[in-house]
């Protein structure tokens, strides 16, 4: 029996890494658009009045919109000959997936942004800076979610794995290949979470040090 490694096509790894790059590309687009939209919504929510109500409703709707359905909506409901400001607006597969993730990322960033702005206005810079690890967490969630692109033919990491799995004859081989995929996806994800944890611990220490300094100052004043 030939080992699995022999049965994998020779270009599997470069193709998979290329596919993963697409996952990251989608996540970058989604987080960038989400940041722009989410921060605007966060500002609107804190502005009060009608704007705050409208922003809260928009955030609620975006939070509830399932990514996979939004993706199929964009794919099928946007006409191929659609224009935006007079320019052609035909969405590529990558853009379709990225935009389908925007409701999630914008809603998440709006929520985190509101909290960060409240912390900042309350005088807690470290509390406000927790916004950064939150954005990092959202980014990695987006990387994982971008695998939904496999359903519409976007050549991302999971697509490459599934194509390779089609060529394998036994369930055992396919499960091993899937495990390889999980490890390859898991490495950047767990590394990202580790970095995020490190940043949070650093913030924790900064907050603790500041608190101690402030306490010491209070004691001196007393």
């Amino acid at each position: 029996m030939r080992p699995l490694i022999d049965r994998l096509s020779s270009d599997f790894l470069p193709l998979f890494l290329g596919g993963m790059a697409v996952n990251f590309e989608i996540a970058v687009i989604a987080i960038a658009v989400g940041l722009a939209l989410g921060l605007l919504l966060a500002l609107a929510r804190l502005a009060g009045g009608v704007m705050a109500g409208a922003a809260a409703s928009a955030i609620g709707l975006m939070r509830a919109a399932p990514t996979f359905v939004v993706m199929f909506f964009l794919l099928n409901a946007v006409p191929r000959d659609a224009t935006l400001f007079g320019e052609p607006f035909a969405l590529s597969g990558i853009m379709t997936v990225a935009l389908s993730l925007v409701p999630y990322s914008a809603a998440y960033i709006a929520d985190s942004g509101v909290e960060a702005l409240r912390q900042y206005r309350g005088g807690s810079l470290p509390g406000a800076l927790l916004f950064l690890p939150n954005v990092t967490r959202a980014f990695f969630v987006l990387v994982m979610s971008s695998s939904a692109g496999a359903a519409i033919g976007v050549t991302e990491g999971i697509t490459i794995i599934l194509r390779q799995a089609e060529q394998l004859p036994t369930l055992g081989d396919r499960l091993v290949l899937f495990a390889i995929g999980i490890v390859l996806f898991g490495i950047p994800l767990q590394a990202g979470f580790a970095v995020m944890g490190f940043i949070q611990r650093r913030f924790g220490r900064i907050v603790a040090r500041r608190t101690e300094v402030m306490k010491a100052a209070d004691i001196k004043i007393e």
Binding site: S147, A150, L171, F178, F185, G186
Partner: peptide, 19 residues
């Protein structure tokens, strides 16, 4: 848990379907 967290949901679904 770490394995499931590291697996994109599409892949988890495919594995569940294959089994």
């Amino acid at each position: 848990t770490v394995t499931l967290q590291s697996s994109p949901i599409v892949l988890t679904l495919v594995i569940a379907a294959a089994i």
